[in-house]
């Protein structure tokens, strides 16, 4: 695993040194190329690493299914009752599953020192961390969103809301990954950051939860869902703009402190 990791980062840095040589010839264009190369290298490297550790990708999904299984057992198997609370349950469980996977977002990179390399890269850290978060969403948020309709069937979620459930989760978990990455970056240097991480991140998740679960509920009642989805999209746009800077600043604090 380590050799693959260094291989990936080596290829990334050799590419950027190639571009660095070209920078002297054509300064402006090649600099952008350097950034794209670095982002692409980070994407490929993280994807490769995460796909090798399948457990880490599957755990949140299994957790999601398990939590959803607990509710009918704890409350009642009555489909009518479950149908009422299903949107909220699915959203809360997916949110917790996404939270569960956050701690490992930067952890292994921090432990083996490759996070430090990322900090030393000439490319802006915000862009590189955005690439890392994108991979995290691709392998946690998106699978959770795709899996949710299946669990929705088990909770007797009323018809007509399945697509909205998946769509709202796909949009919402992207914001969750971005916001959560700030917390993960702040706590990555701490020995027991896990519990603290949830304390930091969960209050910030509430707006996404409100509009995400609200979208599913609106779909059930046959109301328009475009407003909810638009607000979820706005939240995502705002976190896309602001969160990378906060993640980068937090990573610097965790590494240098």
């Amino acid at each position: 695993m380590h050799s693959s990791l260094h291989g990936a980062s080596n290829s990334g840095s050799s590419q950027s040194s190639e571009t660095a040589q070209q920078v002297s010839a054509v300064p402006l264009r090649e600099h952008n190329g350097g950034l794209m190369t670095a982002v692409k290298a980070t994407l490929v490297r993280d994807l490769t690493l995460l796909l090798r550790r399948r457990g880490e990708v599957l755990n949140p999904l299994v957790f999601f299914a398990l939590v959803i299984t607990l509710f009918p057992i704890a409350i009642s198997p009555d489909p009518e009752l479950l149908a009422v609370i299903a949107p909220g349950l699915l959203w809360v469980a997916a949110l917790l599953a996404a939270l569960l996977s956050l701690d490992s977002l930067f952890r292994s990179d921090y432990d083996d020192g490759s996070l430090e390399q990322l900090l030393l890269a000439p490319q802006p850290l915000a862009a590189l961390s955005l690439a890392k978060v994108a991979v995290h969403w691709l392998l946690t948020g998106l699978p959770l969103a795709l899996m949710a309709p299946i669990l929705g069937i088990m909770l007797a979620l009323p018809a007509g809301s399945y697509a909205v459930l998946a769509l709202s989760l796909a949009l919402g978990t992207a914001s969750l990954s971005l916001i959560g990455a700030i917390g993960a970056a702040l706590t990555v240097g701490l020995a027991r950051g896990g519990v603290l991480l949830s304390l930091l991140v969960l209050p910030l998740y509430i707006p996404v939860l409100i509009f995400g679960a609200g979208a599913v509920q609106a779909a059930i009642f046959g109301e328009g869902v475009s407003a909810h989805l638009a607000i979820l999209g706005a939240l995502l746009a705002a976190s896309l703009m602001l969160a990378p800077w906060a993640i980068a600043a937090s990573l610097r604090i965790s590494i240098n402190g």
Binding site: I182, L186, G189, L200, P203, L204, P207, L242, A246, A249, S250, I253, S254, N256, G257
Partner: peptide, 16 residues
Amino acid sequence: SASRAASVLAMVGVIN
């Protein structure tokens, strides 16, 4: 580190 981390979190919080 504590000071800087708390500052970042306070700023993130105030936006939220």
